[in-house]
Design a protein around this nucleic acid. Structure first.
Lengths: 220, 220
DNA sequence: CGAATGTCGAATGTCGACATCTGCGGAGAA
DNA sequence: TTCTCCGCAGATGTCGACATTCGACATTCG
């Protein structure tokens, strides 16, 4: 696990991340403070702080006097989140368009091939890791702190809530082509094209993920 | 103020908002838990929860083992925040372009005139109120929950940190014209134009606000 | 006299206990 | 039998106290 920098809060946050990734916590589940407290050998204070941070990140929803629950996004909310992600990343990349040098683009192309390879071999974990790094390379070129913060948050939220589906959405060829096309558009250095391409990249994925959750209607 | 729904946390948050609006809390100031606790007659627990939420909203910055401070944005960060605001609101409006009916546009034009009037008479509070409502009308037409959440948050942050300058940035005529132009572009129903107009609307303001903070270099 | 160091006060981090509220389940009456 | 009401766990909300860490002042040595 990560180094225990200063407080227990980050440790608890990390722990919940892992529980989410392992699928031990699923959308709609209640996250009990006392349970986490005994599990980690802490009091409820640092647990509560960690949960509050997770609520701020959108991973949990908080109902006063009742508790915290793993976010259960409706199909519409899933699409909304992905659309917003596309908007943010598209703009971030467009703003930093001039900073992408040939070397960066070649690295990105390498990632495309790597993703295809991992997808073919069913190495889901590696596939997702490379995919995440691909997009991090993109929006981290921006030097707009505010923009990066929001993009990072949203990226994190989508990652933890939906990463488990990512390997089943596209065929290995599609994965490669979709990302390869982004690199091509980047090469063109045409700002509007870049923004549009990234928006559609995420719109498409959002639609697909949302379709997986079509039945579960838990509106309020 | 809003109804005190259930817990003290929201009460504390509201209290800090008011302190910020009254100028009793300024960028860089440390926000002491114990001070707030005695001031409100509460223990530190609900205070800490409220402060954490404010950190999540970007109004405070948190330094482990040291404390919470009112966010002191550098000029660059101010510009970044406004640019991001323009991006979000521009997209939100563009997405809901078809939902703006003539009546909405006329309401918006009324607001333009009202803003000019209040500005002329030095009614700062009313001016800001109408200005906020103007932009709320814009982005609240969107039905993208995720987008609205981020826009709302950022709007709130900028409001509390910089609203005090808003009346001194533009002349009454400029205020009217700037917003009138937004309505005109809205009328054109041209998506790219609308996005671009709102981006520039906020870019301009961001530049102006940032200039006010050019001296205060408090890097870390 | 200036700089490094020891010590003290204060603020945050954490804890365990109590107060309050929610939801469930059983007992009793129509 | 079924509906209603009451009371009981168990969860969150809040509190006061202790532990730990940071910053500043005072002291001491070069």
């Amino acid at each position: 696990m990560a180094i225990n920098k200063s407080t227990y809060k980050d440790y608890v946050v990390t722990h919940v991340y892992e529980r989410l990734q392992k699928g031990e916590l699923n959308p709609g589940d209640q996250v009990l403070e006392s349970h986490l407290a005994t599990e980690l050998g802490l009091s409820r204070a640092p647990i509560r702080e960690a949960l509050q941070q997770l609520v701020g990140d959108g991973l949990l929803t908080y109902k006063p006097q009742i508790g915290n629950f793993v976010a259960a996004l409706s199909p519409k909310e899933i699409i909304d989140a992905y659309v917003t992600r596309g908007l943010l990343e598209g703009f971030a990349v467009a703003e930093a368009l001039e900073d992408f040098i040939e070397e960066d683009l070649e690295d990105l192309e390498d990632y495309c091939l790597l993703m295809e390879k991992h997808a073919r071999r069913g190495k889901q974990k590696e596939l997702i890791e490379i995919g995440t790094e691909f997009h991090q390379l993109l929006f981290n070129k921006s030097n707009n702190i505010q923009l990066i913060e929001y993009t990072q948050r949203l990226s994190h939220k989508l990652h933890l809530l939906f990463y488990k589906h990512w390997a089943s959405l596209y065929t290995p060829e599609e994965i490669r082509d979709r990302h390869q096309e982004l690199v091509c558009v980047l090469r063109s250095k045409e700002r509007p094209l870049v923004e549009q391409a990234l928006r559609e990249h995420y719109n498409e994925t959002g639609q697909k993920v949302a379709r997986l959750y079509e039945d579960n209607e838990e509106g309020e």
